[in-house]
Amino acid sequence: MSDFSNALSTSASGLRAQALRLRLTSENIANADTPGYHRKTVPFNSEVDARTGAAVVETGRVNLDRSDLEKIHDPAHPMSDESGNYHGSNVDLMIEIADAREAQRSYEANLKMFDQARQMSSSLLDLLRR
């Protein structure tokens, strides 16, 4: 039964990681027009759970993308400097939409894996009851 619980633990950690990634992608999309906003990213690491021995996905610290901010010329904007420029965000909507789709599909794959392990565990218990 340990293999079933390891499979459940592995897929649950993947679900948590992809949910965080999807949340950060949503924040990035929502703040794409916010002046001075830096895109947020999160790294994934493969770890072994000391208690169960299952391979799990661990998320690292949320990082800010330090690439250059877009320079926008709008002298009427309240944040513009003496030359009429201000810094926009470094969020590329095409990248964020692609990341959101990838996170969604990865989430769905982990959910199917979780459900499959749960169904196999349930079937095994049914067989053992007979």
Rank of each mutant, 00 (worst) to 15 (best):
V48R: 08
V48I: 15
D49A: 13
A50T: 14
A50I: 14
A50E: 15
R51C: 07
R51A: 15
G53A: 11
G53E: 12
A54T: 11
A54H: 13
A54K: 11
A55R: 11
A55E: 12
V56A: 07
V56P: 06
V56M: 10
V57A: 08
E58F: 05
E58Q: 15
E58M: 09
T59C: 10
T59E: 10
T59M: 09
G60E: 12
G60D: 12
R61T: 14
R61S: 14
R61F: 09
R61W: 05
R61H: 08
V62L: 08
V62G: 07
V62H: 07
N63F: 13
L64P: 05
D65F: 08
D65R: 10
R66E: 14
R66H: 14
S67Q: 13
S67C: 12
S67I: 12
D68N: 14
D68W: 07
D68V: 07
D68G: 15
L69T: 09
L69E: 11
E70Y: 04
E70Q: 14
E70S: 08
K71T: 12
K71C: 01
I72N: 00
I72Y: 02
D74S: 01
D74F: 01
P75W: 01
P75R: 01
A76V: 00
A76G: 00
A76R: 00
A76E: 02
A76S: 03
H77G: 01
H77C: 00
P78K: 02
P78L: 00
P78Q: 00
P78Y: 00
M79A: 08
M79H: 03
M79I: 03
S80E: 01
S80C: 01
S80T: 06
E82V: 08
E82A: 10
E82K: 09
E82S: 10
S83M: 04
S83Q: 06
S83Y: 03
S83R: 06
G84L: 01
N85W: 08
Y86H: 06
H87W: 07
G88V: 01
G88T: 03
G88W: 02
S89A: 13
S89G: 06
S89P: 06
N90E: 14
V91M: 10
V91S: 08
V91L: 09
D92Q: 14
L93R: 07
L93H: 03
M94D: 06
M94G: 04
M94F: 05
I95F: 07
I95D: 13
I95P: 01
E96V: 05
E96T: 07
I97W: 05
I97S: 03
I97D: 01
A98M: 10
D99N: 15
D99I: 05
D99S: 13
A100H: 06
A100V: 04
A100T: 12
E102P: 02
E102K: 07
A103Y: 09
A103D: 10
Q104S: 14
Q104W: 09
Q104K: 09
S106N: 13
S106Y: 06
S106A: 15
Y107F: 15
Y107M: 11
